[in-house]
C-alpha cells in the first residue's frame, strides 16, 4: 500500500465503526488479491478522490485467479473453475 493510499484508508477508517469493512483488494477464491494498478475513486460531492482501489488487474489474468477448487455450493453443477472445461 502506498503512503497516499494509507492516508486515505486511515481517513475512511476513522469514519467507520468497523474499519475492516473498507477493503481495497479484489476478493477472489476467498483471498484478498492485489491487482496490478491503483485506481483513484472520486467522491462525487467534492470532486476529489477519497480512496484508492487496489484491485484492478489485467482482464486476461482474472480467470486463472478464479477459484481453483471452490467447494460445491449445492453438490451439483458447481463445478470447480479449473475442472469445468473438462466436463
Amino acid at each position: 500500500m502506498s503512503a497516499l493510499t494509507a492516508i486515505h484508508a486511515i481517513t475512511l477508517a476513522e469514519r467507520l465503526e468497523d474499519p475492516r469493512l473498507f477493503r481495497q483488494y479484489a476478493y477472489i477464491d476467498g483471498k484478498w488479491t492485489h491487482g496490478h494498478r491503483e485506481e483513484a475513486v472520486t467522491n462525487p460531492a467534492t470532486g476529489k478522490f477519497w480512496a484508492i482501489s487496489l484491485c484492478w488487474m489485467p482482464a486476461r489474468s482474472l480467470l486463472p485467479l478464479m477459484p481453483p477448487s471452490p467447494p460445491s455450493f449445492t453438490g451439483v453443477r458447481c463445478v470447480p473453475m479449473s475442472a469445468a472445461s473438462a466436463c
Partner: peptide, 27 residues
C-alpha cells in the same frame, strides 16, 4: 467498488465458502 468489497467482507464473515462469492475490478 467499495460497497461491493464490503459485501465480500461480510459474505466471508457469514460463512459463505471461499470461491462462492468473488469480486473483481478492472477495465
Amino acid at each position: 467498488p467499495f460497497s461491493a468489497l464490503a459485501l465480500a467482507e461480510l459474505a466471508e464473515r457469514a460463512g459463505i465458502p471461499k470461491g462462492i462469492f468473488n469480486v473483481v475490478l478492472g477495465e
